[in-house]
């Protein structure tokens, strides 16, 4: 089957990591890098890989729209507004890795099927990608009354965008715990730990399920199945210990080691975003191919 053509907007850390991951994809063909600073490391690397490089961002695509079918936006919430408009005008599908959240939230192991034809989907947050599958797995056995997650990441892996607007993380993640995870009420906390060497990303999920609905064995199995699913595209995703049960509360400890593609291994928080984005794009691409064949 022909590969589906994709492009990246933003040549920073996230864009550069996407570049490495997409080069390995069997379904997607990375053709284009859209940045704003031609001298940046990411743009230089894109040139080296032989990609079409635009230094006027997404606007470069207006001249040659046939270069891509799916676009990854790895810029910022502010820049995404314009990028999304251009994508819509050109009829391209948009994967939004920024906190802009114009389109529906997507966690690939949870609700991707519902949004295969959406023109714009949002990847939530790193903490959301790491924890919402677990909330969803618990909720599939016992309705989650309250889902709370705590994401601890190394200070070094928290970029200036995250730092300047940390409420975006807590608010967006909390919303997605409800909308995608299925919890009646969601809450999210983020901690930046400066220890050296940098710590791996850790996430803790606390969930309170409906009275009398707790089934330890089934929940443990559902979580374990979900971990395996996530591991298919984030190999460094794992449980630190067995889930801990206490009455109608269950606590799950996760650790995410990055693949170490472009970003260091401790930056599991960034890796899980780019890995999820590629996974979503691959599914969208397969869907496009199926649709065109039918």
């Amino acid at each position: 089957m022909d590969k589906v053509k994709v492009g990246i907007i933003g040549s920073g850390n996230i864009g550069s990591d996407l570049m490495v991951k997409l080069t390995n994809s069997e379904v997607l063909e990375l053709t284009t890098m859209m940045g704003i600073d031609a001298s940046s490391r990411g743009m230089q690397h894109a040139k080296y890989l032989g990609l079409q490089v635009f230094d006027n961002g997404v606007d470069g695509l207006l001249e040659q729209p046939e270069l891509v079918d799916i676009i990854f936006d790895a810029t910022s919430a502010g820049a995404h507004i314009h990028n999304a408009e251009v994508a819509r005008k050109l009829g391209k599908q948009m994967l939004d890795l920024t906190p802009a959240a114009i389109g529906p939230f997507v966690a690939p192991t949870v609700n991707l099927d519902e949004h295969l034809d959406a023109e714009n989907v949002n990847l939530i947050t790193c903490g959301g990608q790491a924890t919402i599958p677990i909330i969803h797995a618990i909720n599939s056995i016992a309705p989650v009354e309250y889902g709370e997650i705590v994401a601890t990441i190394s200070s070094k892996s928290a970029g200036p965008g995250t730092r300047a607007n940390i409420d975006e993380f807590t608010e967006t993640t909390a919303k997605a715990i409800e909308q995608v995870g299925g919890a009646k009420k969601g809450k999210a906390i983020i901690i930046l730990n400066p220890a050296e060497p940098p710590i791996m990303m850790r996430d803790t999920v606390h969930a309170i399920v409906e009275e009398d609905k707790m089934d330890q064995e089934k929940i443990t199995n559902a979580i374990s199945d979900m971990v395996k699913k996530v591991q298919t595209f984030v190999p460094g995703y794992h449980l630190r210990t067995e889930p801990i049960f206490d009455g109608n509360k269950v606590t799950v400890f996760l650790e995410i080691e990055g693949a170490g593609h472009f970003l260091p291994k401790y930056a599991g928080n960034l890796d899980i975003m780019t890995a999820a984005a590629v996974k979503v794009a691959e599914e969208l691409a397969k869907n496009r191919v199926n649709v065109s064949v039918n």
């Binding site: 705590v150 601890t152 906390i189 901690i191 730990n193 400066p194 220890a195 850790r202 803790t204 630190r240 210990t241 801990i244 606590t251 400890f253």
Partner: peptide, 11 residues
């Protein structure tokens, strides 16, 4: 471990 990482206590 820094303030806020109470989950690490159980861990």
């Amino acid at each position: 471990i820094i303030g806020g990482q109470e989950d690490m206590i159980f861990d």
